[in-house]
Design a protein around this nucleic acid. Sequence first.
DNA 1: TTTAGCACTGCTATCTCAACATTGCCAATA
DNA 2: TATTGGCAATGTTGAGATAGCAGTGCTAAA
Lengths: 328, 328
Amino acid sequence: MLSERQKKILKLIVESYIRQAKPVSSNQLSYKLKCSSATVRSEMAGLEELGYLEKTHTSSGRVPSEEGYRYYVDNLMEAKKINGEEMLKLQIIFHNQSLELSDCINKSLQVISDMTSYTAVVLGKASHENLLKEVRVVPLDTNHLIVIVVTDKGKVEHKNITLDNVGMEDIKKTVELINNLIVGTPIDEVSTKLEFEIKPIISKYVEQHQQLYNAIYNVFNDITNTDINVVGRTKFLEQPEFDNVDKIRDLFKKLDDEDLLQKIKRDDSNNIEVYIGSENKLDNDVTVIKTNFKTDSEEGTLAIIGPKRMEYDRVVSILEYLKENIEG
Amino acid sequence: MLSERQKKILKLIVESYIRQAKPVSSNQLSYKLKCSSATVRSEMAGLEELGYLEKTHTSSGRVPSEEGYRYYVDNLMEAKKINGEEMLKLQIIFHNQSLELSDCINKSLQVISDMTSYTAVVLGKASHENLLKEVRVVPLDTNHLIVIVVTDKGKVEHKNITLDNVGMEDIKKTVELINNLIVGTPIDEVSTKLEFEIKPIISKYVEQHQQLYNAIYNVFNDITNTDINVVGRTKFLEQPEFDNVDKIRDLFKKLDDEDLLQKIKRDDSNNIEVYIGSENKLDNDVTVIKTNFKTDSEEGTLAIIGPKRMEYDRVVSILEYLKENIEG
DNA sequence: TTTAGCACTGCTATCTCAACATTGCCAATA
DNA sequence: TATTGGCAATGTTGAGATAGCAGTGCTAAA
C-alpha cells in the first residue's frame, strides 16, 4: 500500500512523463509538493524499489515502469471527460442518417485518431443477430451473374460469378430454394445450413450446381468475416519514442499483420480494457486500449494503440463515449 | 549528343547506384571499362558539366542527377522482362474466375509491391461503359430500406436509408419509374438524367421524395467515384534514402492525401509514363511510374512509387505486364 | 522526518585527429 | 591528341578526449 505522498508523486511523474516524454527530476516535483527535492528523491527511491519507477541511467530522472503505468491506470487516474468540440464531431457522424453503422465507426475512428494522435483500430463483423433477408441473383449475360445477399439488419454483400452452361431455370430454382428454406436464419448459421440442407437438394437436380453453390457460400463467408480497419498508423511517427526507422518498420509490420491484430480481441468483457506494454500481444512498446461493442447489426472490437506514454485518461473516456454512440 | 563511352559510363553509374545506393567512384568503373580511373574521371567531369551527374560533396563519387535518370530512362535503359515466377503469381490472380476485376487489381498490386519493394497505387472507377442494369429496393422494416444498384458490367453499390412515413407504394412507384426510364443509361450520365428527368416526375406525386431521391443519387455517386488504394506504403522504410523520420512522415502524409494522389493521373496517355523527382507532383524524392488502364467495367490509373533510385527497367515491364493482364 | 550540501555519475555536445576514399590537375606518355 | 600515373587537396567517418550539465545518493545537521 502506497502512502498518499507516494501516490501523489507517482501520479505526477506519470502525468508529467506522458506530456513531456522526458524523465522527471526530483527538482521539478519539489515545486509542486511542499517539500524539498531531497525528500522527493528518497520517495522516488522507494517507488523505484517497489518497481513503479525506473531510471534511464544512474543519474537520470525517473520514468514510469509498466507497473507504474498499471498502478496509475488502476488507482490514480481520474476520468477526463471528452470535450465539447470532440463530442460534437462524433455526434455529427452518428446523427447522419444516411451513413451505415460501419461507415460511422470508420469515420469516427478517423476523427479519434486525429484528435488523439494515436492509431485506431476496429475489428468488426456482422453480428449474429443478422438474419438472412433475401438472396437475389441478377443475370448479366448468358454466363455471368451477380449474387446479392441482404440481411434484415441491412448488411449487403455481393459477388460476381461466371457459370458455363447453367440454365437460368436452374439458377432460379436454386435461389428460390434458398429463399424458401433459409431466409430468417442467423447469418452465421447459414453456412452450415447451406451445406447440410441445401446442398443435398440442389445437387440432385441442378447440374453444375457446384459453382453456383460455391459462389453463394463465399458471399456468406464474406458477410460473416471480420473486417479489419486500421486508421492513423502514421501517428506513431509523431511520437518521440518512435524516432528510429527500425522500430517504426517493426511496428508497422505488426499493424499490417491481420492475424496479430485479431489478438487484440482477447476477451468478451464489456468494459474498457488497458493492456500496457508486455501486457498486450502486439508490441512491448505500445499500449492497447480496447473495448468490445455489439449492436443489432454489428459487433466487434475498438482499440486505440499508442505509446505506453499514452494519455490514458483521455483515451479511456473517448472510447467509452464512442462505444455509447455505437451501441446508442 | 553523348559519345558511346559517355553513354556507357552514365548507364553503369545509374545502374550501380540503383543497386548499391552509394556514390560511384571512377575506380569502380575503370574495372568495367578498358581504361584508367583518370580517364573515367575526366568523362565523369564532362557528364557532370552536362548535368547528368552530381557529387554529394567535393571528393565523393558520382550520383545520377534527375536529368541523368531521365536520359537513362529515355535512351539507355533496356527492357528487363518480368521473370516467370512473378508472371505466374499474377496469372493465378487473373485466372481466378471468382474474383472481380477490381479485386484482381488490388491483389496484384499487393504482389507487385512485395516483389518490387515499392509502393503501388491504383486510382480506379467504374468505366463509363457501365450501363445501369437495375435498381432494386429491399425494405427492411417500416422505415428502413436498402437501395441496390447494379450495372451490366457487374458493379454493385448499395446504401441504407431511413425514411419517415414514405409508403411502400411510393417507393415501388419511384423504383419502377427509374427502372423504366433510365435502365441502359451509362452510369456516369445517370446523375444528370436523374436530376432532369426523374426528379420532376417523382416530386409531383411522391411525398418525401427528397430523401429517397438523395439516397439513390448518392448510390450513383459512389459507383462513379474514384476509388483509391495504396498498397505497401511502408516499403519506403526499406529504402536507405528514407532513413530519417521527418522525411518518412512527410512522405506518408502525401501518400494519405487523396487529392494529391489524384494528380498522379495527369494525362490520358496509353503508355507507361515515368515521372522522376520534381517531374511528379507528389514528392521530389520519389519517382512515379504510371499507366492508365481501361476495360469494359473499370478504368483508372496504376502507379508504382519508389525512390528516384528505382529499378526503372523492372518496374516498367511489370507495369506493362499488369496492364496487359487487366485489359487482356 | 526533512533538509542542505556535496561528491559522483552518465549524458550530450563539441573538438580534434587520423585514416580513408575520392577527386582534380598536371606533366609524362603512347 | 587521348590516355595515364602521380600527387596534393578535400570532405567523410569514426574514435577518443574533454567540459558542462542535470540529476542522483548519501550523510550529517536541523
